[in-house]
Simulated scan of single mutants.
Amino acid sequence: MTKLIIQIPCLNEAESLPETLSRLPRQIDGIDTIEILIIDDGSTDDTVGVARRWGVHHVVRHRRNQGLASAFQDGVRKALASGADIIVNTDADGQYEGADIALLVQPLLAGEADIVIGDRGVADNAHFGPFKRRLQRLGSYVVRRLSRADIGDAVSGFRAISRDAAQRMTITTEFSYTTDMLIQAGRKRLAITSVPVRTHATERPSRLFKSIPRFIMNTGVTMARAYTTYNPLRAFVGSGLVVGTIGVIPMLRFVWFVLQGDGSGHIQSLVIGGSLMVIGVLLCLLGVLADLVASNRKLVETSLLEIRQLRDEVAGLRREGPAEVPAQAEPVRKAG
């Protein structure tokens, strides 16, 4: 039995949610059960009421708005607890074509991927303006380099995740899960692929960010944070070497003037160069310490994964328990 749960993070989506739900598939080849999960991220309208009237199977509610990343993570947690073998995330604004969920899940059903990203074809998408196309392409390029995953549309929220991959993911950012998740998955060597999907024009502006500069800043911080978390030695030592190398330049300048017999008037070069070299060494030492912390984080993640898998096994034993326990208990009573 293969269960698919389609999760939809929502914030005041009472008007757009019915159309989004109407486009979701009710049957997919290779999927036995399809259920729908709504994550209400502090809506002040009737989003939950609309969802229930449309027969949504699961609802997760936040009393206050906690952000898209938190909504995504809580949705994944609920989907796993509800027995999902595959989790598909889509938006409530109707941007993505719901029927293309069948395309998203195929690589997972075939065992070819752990995560599948819906590629909106940003370069040629008529629903994106020229500036947004360039911005999306630049962001996807940076994420490809950081995650080592060949993905053309890194910030697409239309994605399918296997149960095993979902158990390995823990979103740490408070802004958006898209880039954080891909960098994590790439560094954990999960199989990531993408499939072309259709999109629709959206009538309302994004609720994730209020301006393009703010989006760029938040996304940049998220990518830098995720990369540093999983590559602390390279990030800190690389920065330390750059700063230290820059510090060599004024030091050489000071040495040059000393050799010319005019060193007393250029002490500032010695001070600046020495300071930069000390900062470089400190950054390298921080990199070593951060790498030790990262090693400990890997142990914690391994333990967390084993706990999640053990919880699945216990849940399976509980479902089969009434038929098995008496058969095991009977020989013990005879031996007594």
Score class of each variant (00 low, 15 high):
151 I>H: 04
151 I>V: 15
180 D>H: 10
289 L>P: 00
244 G>F: 09
243 V>H: 04
97 E>C: 08
281 V>P: 00
108 L>Y: 01
255 V>M: 14
228 T>A: 15
88 V>M: 09
299 L>E: 11
8 I>Y: 03
241 L>V: 14
262 D>Y: 13
84 A>N: 09
1 M>T: 11
273 G>K: 02
105 V>N: 02
93 D>Q: 04
35 E>T: 04
240 G>H: 03
56 V>W: 03
20 T>A: 12
305 L>Q: 03
316 G>N: 13
78 K>V: 06
92 A>L: 06
195 V>G: 06
106 Q>H: 08
310 L>D: 09
134 R>F: 09
334 K>Q: 14
142 V>P: 00
233 L>V: 01
20 T>P: 05
4 L>P: 03
144 R>K: 14
198 R>D: 10
193 T>Y: 04
290 A>S: 15
16 S>L: 12
254 F>I: 03
86 I>C: 06
139 G>A: 04
265 G>T: 11
144 R>G: 07
114 D>T: 00
8 I>N: 00
49 G>P: 00
128 F>W: 09
181 M>P: 02
129 G>Q: 08
133 R>M: 08
45 D>M: 10
200 H>G: 04
153 D>C: 11
297 R>W: 07
86 I>A: 02
12 N>V: 07
237 V>S: 03
209 F>S: 12
97 E>F: 05
332 V>N: 03
325 V>W: 12
335 A>S: 10
223 M>C: 11
305 L>A: 06
328 Q>L: 15
285 L>T: 06
222 T>C: 08
266 H>L: 05
203 E>S: 11
253 R>I: 15
77 R>I: 09
203 E>T: 11
107 P>L: 07
98 G>F: 01
252 L>C: 11
158 F>M: 02
104 L>Q: 04
29 D>Y: 07
329 A>T: 14
118 G>N: 02
95 Q>P: 00
178 T>D: 15
137 R>E: 13
294 A>G: 10
199 T>V: 10
130 P>H: 02
285 L>V: 15
82 S>R: 13
15 E>M: 10
75 G>H: 00
318 R>E: 13
237 V>E: 05
86 I>P: 01
241 L>E: 09
205 P>S: 07
11 L>S: 04
106 Q>V: 07
83 G>C: 10
269 S>H: 12
53 R>N: 12
287 G>Y: 03
172 T>A: 14
205 P>L: 09
247 G>H: 05
254 F>W: 15
145 R>W: 08
7 Q>I: 01
